[in-house]
Design a binder for these strands. Structure first.
Lengths: 161, 161
DNA sequence: GTCGGTGCAAATGCTTTGCATTGAT
DNA sequence: ATCAATGCAAAGCATTTGCACCGAC
């Protein structure tokens, strides 16, 4: 996980701190650095993921690329998802389900989510307070923090799940 | 703002706030309330879990009860684990693995963990700071927090995972 | 006798892998 | 020619389920 930049922690107001470098370029760089190739199939999987712009499951991608101009097999989708994780482009989100769900990671953004138990909606947040608390906890124990993940489960007042 | 509690482990009775009511009683009550029975197999699974007193996987339990006086089948272990979750006695912990891991829940204790990436060790922590941050985040959005889960991934300084 | 409980084995469902084929340099 | 990528089908694996038998009330 590259943390060496810390650049746009800026007041970028949009829900997603928008992209400095196209993700496909990031992906291409990662692949090249390992002697792998940026194939049409891999590009198409990434493109499909970016278009979704939300949490997704492997299966969703598999379905989408099944009925499209560039057909990609299930196996390749899974293999590509793994590569994208390694590249830090997507990351796995852990809710309660067994099926893996992923989201775009946009570089080094940690996982801070609110899971609405009433609406099943997932809200990504970004709180310096949480980051600081986690960093603290590690520091107190002489550990180096490599990342963290916070899931907050919440409901609207008065809703009875 | 320093919480009066801080990161103490000392003043509290023990790493786990100890049990007011035996867990088996809690379990029995839950079962009875649904017209189910507190069988020797179910008791033995719960007992095995309590003895572990740490994170565990279904498989660990299956192995333990396989070579014991009261043999319990794999199916029953899984079925019992589900019941124990419903009873709020154990809860699932989400790390990166696909295999489910559980821990004793002791009522409402939230999940705060440090996952050591170098040693694969899991350290449970308790930080008022985190709880406060999470509560804040919900309050800011007019939501009611039902719980939260924090996983911090960390390594010893200098270790290269 | 009626229900639920258990064990076993078979079934699931997501994900991974082996292998032959194909494509790029 | 080499080396990796793809698709397909088969394999894995944790977990669930169908079913026949058993035991408590």
């Amino acid at each position: 996980m590259p943390q060496t930049q810390g650049n746009q922690k800026a007041a970028a107001p949009s829900p997603h701190p928008r992209i400095v470098e196209p993700l496909c370029a990031v992906f291409r760089r990662k692949l090249k650095s390992e002697g792998l190739k940026y194939t049409p199939e891999r590009a198409h999987v990434l493109d499909t993921i970016v278009r979704l712009d939300e949490l997704f499951e492997a299966d969703t991608i598999i379905e989408r690329v099944k009925n499209s101009d560039i057909r990609v097999s299930k196996a390749t989708v899974y293999r590509t998802i793994k590569l994208l994780q390694e590249a830090g482009i997507i990351q796995r989100v852990l809710c309660d389900e067994d099926q893996a769900r992923y989201q775009l990671a946009y570089g080094a953004s940690p996982q801070e989510l609110i899971v609405r138990l009433d609406t099943r909606e997932i809200i990504t947040i970004s709180s310096g307070e949480l980051a600081a608390a986690c960093a603290n906890i590690c520091a107190e124990r002489g550990l180096v923090m490599d990342g963290y993940r916070v899931h907050i489960f919440a409901t609207a007042p008065g809703s009875n799940v």
